[in-house]
């Protein structure tokens, strides 16, 4: 999946809860519970509304000490996982 070419990405409407900087997402239909660390929680929060890949990458760069190449690689990996678990929508 080439996330850089998508127009927007957003998370599905699912029950979630942030606790001590981490996020728990429940997917009742699939009987799944997901846990995200601090960076994952940051991404989840930003994806509550439609966001472009570039905007998402820039927000991470603004908030975490990490280089552009690493962010793009990790962000793609994270989006791949979220897509695999059917937690996000995109166009």
């Amino acid at each position: 999946m080439s996330w850089q070419n998508t127009q927007w990405i957003k998370v599905k409407v699912l029950p979630w809860q942030e606790i001590e900087g981490r996020t728990i997402v429940l997917y009742p239909e699939k009987r799944m519970a997901h846990e995200m660390n601090q960076v994952g929680s940051f991404i989840w929060n930003k994806l509550l509304n439609k966001v472009t890949f570039d905007h998402m990458r820039d927000m991470i760069l603004e908030n975490f000490q990490v280089d552009t190449q690493t962010v793009e690689k990790d962000l793609c990996a994270m989006l791949d996982k979220l897509a695999h678990e059917e937690l996000i929508e995109w166009q």
Binding site: R31, M32, A33, H34, E35, N37, G40, D74, L75
Partner: peptide, 12 residues
């Protein structure tokens, strides 16, 4: 970026 999943029931 850590992303862990736990399934309460395996889908079968």
């Amino acid at each position: 970026m850590q992303f862990e999943t736990h399934s309460s029931v395996p889908a079968k």
